[in-house]
């Protein structure tokens, strides 16, 4: 009684992501519900001092792909015929790795006569948030990971403008290098985050604000400053309180990330902030962002950790929006290791 009948059929996207270390497949329902999400991490067994040897070779993706695909279908209780479209990460990433995903998607789409959609990897990270809540435009996405630190303005779906980015190291890379200098176990980011809760910010490490009005970032000076501080102390035979280094370093990183995000948000008059990428898991960054925007009308959205790292669910979320907009890739879809997000959104 009184209920409006919705006769719209459920729509399912099969999504594939192989841009770097991970072979991932997901099935997404109506753009916002994760039916299955399988990630075969290729980095688990190859730890060495302060780092990981990545198994990024195409061969590893090829070996994993059929298993991951099969598991995604088994977990979903769906058959290929229920799938409405196939979305795949087209770039950026490693060309050999990308090609495995793209070839798989093309073969499946061709064999089963399904529409094919190419997705930008970073667009995927941003759209991961739509698995939680729909976007409100204009929005500002802060993308922070080992390989990226970018501020991306979106005035509408599939409208991306890079308004700031790192000129040298990504925030996650700085975390990793500092962790290595402090001889912390891998992965270093969470370890620094944990130690940062215990120390005192007494080193006053540099904060790179760059030119007036710039929304770009720079973390290599900070990284060098931390490394020098640790080395100098060692040479003088002094003991450095690792927790104090971690606290000072983390507050330098978060100060700049948060303040630049805030200024850009004000400048462009956005309605919400989306945080994306692996560093979004950092508790120092989360609380600093929420504090800074506490008295503001701008909403801050941070996805759960499993959506921050590389996965295919995010590709499905981005793919669904593209599907609804009518974007279709041809059979000539190719891996594009240098795919530019601004150019991508114009196509």
């Amino acid at each position: 009684m009184g209920e409006i009948m919705n006769d719209k059929k459920d729509q399912y996207i099969l999504a594939i992501e192989t841009s770097c270390d991970e072979t991932a497949v997901a099935i997404i329902k109506n753009g916002n519900e994760v039916v299955s999400n399988v990630v075969a991490s290729q980095i688990e067994s190859h730890k060495r001092f302060g780092g990981v040897v990545p198994e990024v070779a195409s061969r590893h993706h090829v070996e994993q792909m059929t298993h991951v695909l099969e598991e995604a279908f088994v977990k979903s209780n769906l058959e290929m015929e229920s799938i409405d479209a196939i979305a795949v990460t087209q770039g950026p990433g490693l060309v050999g790795a990308l090609l495995v995903g793209v070839s798989t998607a093309k073969a499946l789409a061709f064999a089963h006569q399904k529409p094919l959609i190419g997705v930008h990897h970073i667009a995927g990270h941003i759209y991961a948030n739509q698995l939680q809540e729909p976007f409100t435009f204009p929005l500002l996405a802060l993308v922070v990971s080992g390989g990226h630190t970018e501020l991306i303005l979106m005035r509408d779906h599939y409208d991306f403008e890079v308004i700031g980015e790192t000129r040298d190291d990504a925030a996650g890379e700085a975390y990793d290098k500092v962790a290595r200098t402090l001889n912390l176990p891998y992965p270093g980011g969470p370890e620094i985050d944990r130690l940062a809760q215990e120390g005192v910010d007494r080193f006053d490490f540099p904060r790179a604000w760059l030119e007036e009005g710039s929304f770009d970032f720079s973390f290599s000076g900070l990284k060098s400053s931390v490394i020098n501080t640790v080395h100098n102390a060692k040479q003088k035979g002094e003991t450095v309180e690792i927790a104090d280094i971690a606290t000072s370093f983390q507050s330098s990183v978060t100060d700049v990330l948060v303040e630049k995000t805030y200024r850009a948000a004000e400048y462009y008059g956005v309605k919400e902030i989306i945080v994306a990428g692996g560093v979004a898991a950092n508790s120092g960054l989360r609380s600093a962002l929420l504090d800074r925007f506490d008295s503001s009308a701008i909403q801050v959205k941070i996805p759960p950790l499993w959506l921050c790292t590389d996965n295919a669910a995010m590709i499905g979320a981005a793919g669904m929006v593209a599907y609804e907009k009518g974007y279709r890739a041809g059979w000539d879809l190719n891996a594009n290791p240098g795919l530019d997000i601004e150019m991508y959104s114009k196509n």
Binding site: G147, A170, P337
Partner: peptide, 28 residues
């Protein structure tokens, strides 16, 4: 910017430009 984590970053100029950092591939 740095390709240390991603290993390669590719750009489009007059021709493609690839920036590879093989640091993470030491034992690969």
């Amino acid at each position: 910017n740095s390709p240390t984590f991603t290993i390669v970053k590719s750009y489009q100029g007059e021709i493609p430009f690839h920036h590879i950092d093989a640091y993470r591939l030491e034992e690969s």
